[in-house]
């Protein structure tokens, strides 16, 4: 009658064995359950993973999803063609304006280069204008496009983006914020293209331009409307150099008084007699 007894012993042994083997698993399971049920513990575990994924997405998104997103956009464009045209229409005016401004600039450059000695620029401009007479819209575009007008001018400390001087045709609010943003954009562009020795020299938005002249410890930003030919940009550049030489030496210790003086000079030299 040893058999059932042996059976029993085996069963006890097996249970004990199971207990030993599974105890760790069970403890682990309870811990997992606790973690899952406690939002704080759960977020401690999950947050690093989410952060990691976010980082990954941030860096990989453009490559991984470009084609998929592209296809989606194509499909939607096809679907909403009419609606799109409706939205596009007002934008078209801006594009046309930009195009004409650009064409006019090209023409000016050509005139600058070849016809300068034969005709005066003014006559050619007048002729060009005459051709367009009668067409209200384009005439309107051209009046804006054929002469540059300095709207605002800033002297900005190169590294900090703080204003060293400012002048504007019309009162502009928060010029120091503009100066800061300009500097941020400039740093961003210069950083992004890793051109340590090259500087951003022009920002263009529609027919509005910001011409930038860089100096060692500061830069001058000139915001203007209209097109700027190569020779006009030379003239402006020379004028800025002269200005810098006369009024922007010794800029180490900036005071409010210095800033006010520079601003007055900017106004007298660039804004007043336009």
């Amino acid at each position: 009658m040893t058999r059932p007894n042996k059976h029993l012993n085996e069963k006890i042994l097996l249970d004990e064995l199971r207990e030993v083997i599974l105890r760790e698993d069970r403890e682990a399971l309870t811990e997992i359950e606790n973690t899952l049920n406690d939002p704080r513990l759960l977020s401690e575990k999950v947050n690093p993973i989410i952060e990691q994924h976010l980082e990954f997405l941030k860096s990989e998104f453009p490559d991984a999803y470009r084609t998929a997103v592209g296809r989606q956009i194509d499909a939607r464009l096809e679907l909403f063609k009419d609606e799109m045209i409706g939205h596009m229409y007002p934008e078209m005016g801006k594009i046309v304006r930009k195009y004409v401004t650009h064409q006019f600039q090209l023409l000016k450059e050509r005139i600058d280069g070849t016809v300068r000695n034969t005709f005066s620029l003014k006559t050619v401009k007048r002729k060009f204008k005459a051709t367009f007479l009668g067409i209200d819209e384009s005439d309107l575009v051209l009046t804006g496009a054929d002469s540059i007008k300095i709207e605002e001018i800033y002297v900005i400390q190169r590294n900090s983006g703080l204003l060293l001087g400012k002048a504007a045709r019309e009162e502009v609010l928060d010029q120091d914020v503009v100066a800061g943003m300009l500097t941020a954009i400039k740093s961003f562009v210069e950083d992004a293209f890793r051109r340590d020795s090259e500087d951003l020299e022009m920002i263009q938005y529609g027919s509005y331009k910001i011409f930038i002249q860089n100096f060692h410890s500061y830069y001058i930003a000139v915001a203007m409307q209209g097109s700027l030919s190569a020779s006009e940009s030379d003239v402006l550049s020379t004028k800025l150099l002269k200005f810098a030489h006369s009024y922007l030496e010794k800029l180490e210790n900036i005071t409010d008084l210095k800033i006010r003086n520079i601003s007055t000079k900017l106004y007298e030299n660039f804004i007043k007699d336009q």
Binding site: E51, E55, Q157, N159, S160, G161, L162, D176, V177, G180, A184, S187, F188, E190, D191
Partner: peptide
């Protein structure tokens, strides 16, 4: 005191922020 505040995009580590942003701060 006029404060010009630069609110910059967050980065997991500070050395990822373009150093030029900090200049003159």
């Amino acid at each position: 005191i006029p404060l010009l505040l630069w609110d910059i995009a967050g980065e997991v580590a500070q050395d990822k922020v373009p150093t030029s942003y900090f200049l003159g701060a």
